[in-house]
Design a protein around this nucleic acid. Structure first.
Lengths: 132, 132
DNA sequence: CCGGATTTTGACAACCGTTTTCATTTTGGC
DNA sequence: GCCAAAATGAAAACGGTTGTCAAAATCCGG
């Protein structure tokens, strides 16, 4: 049964940016869901395997997940203050990656790209939105 | 004082690709160095802070380090089979990152880019070089 | 060189996110 | 209802990393 997995997916869909497994778990419990941490992890992994969610590693090694808004290859522009995320397509990067790869004789090229920045609202605000 | 840190740095310089802290530690001990794991971690962090080594997170959350060959901003092209690494400059990516960032009103843009592929020798070899 | 303050070191424990284990529960087929 | 297979989840195990804290090394003024 995929009830739990769907619930996890739904929780992710309701979220704005990337959420950690523990985060998702905590929220689901708050909403009264009867689910275990283990199951959340498994659901998230399964979802990621099927390409239905994006996975990112934070700098401190934590995995964060987000329901994809598009089903095509894309990258993320993440606000380092409030976590706001924009999915961006980057044909230029795809081509660049392919180019540098083949330039050095590499094949089956894949790449990970994350762009971080401070979003407009956070730039004009002295304290992080949602943190202060 | 900085003797240990230098030793750590040297060990990294002698390495071809990225090495984990534990890896570096193990090698140093093999070579007879009297040093503790904690110190290796601290040295690596210090080195990374000073920009003297590159840091990467592997997919399983481990931090791997490598002595920089260039002191300017660059990215990595990593062979997923043998780990061979090439440092690549990518003005195109830098510009692209800046562009997508400002396009969405983001400032202070930084980015992480990793390109993975299978290098020439590994492509022509049925088993991973150095693993089989 | 001496004494004391400061920094560095490293063995070990603590942390924390993640994964595994394994017994229990749920589900599907008959 | 009954059995086999899959899912679940509490708790333990895991593994990399970080913190603790006492001992050792270093620095510095005298």
């Amino acid at each position: 049964m995929t009830t739990r997995r769907d619930a996890v997916h739904d929780t992710l869909r309701q979220s704005e940016g990337f959420r950690s497994a523990q985060d998702v778990y905590a929220e689901m419990r708050l909403h009264g869901a009867k689910i275990g941490l283990t199951t959340v992890y498994r659901a998230l992994q399964a979802l990621a395997d099927k390409g239905q969610v994006d996975v990112l590693r934070t700098d401190d090694g934590e995995s964060v997940y987000r329901a994809c808004e598009t089903d095509t290859h894309h990258h993320h522009l993440v606000c380092r203050r409030c976590g706001r995320t924009v999915e961006v397509a980057g044909p230029a990067v795809e081509r660049w990656a392919e180019a540098v790869g083949s330039e050095h004789g590499f094949t089956e090229i894949t790449h990970t790209v994350e762009v971080f920045g401070t979003c407009a609202s956070c730039s004009s605000c002295p304290v992080p939105a949602g943190t202060g």
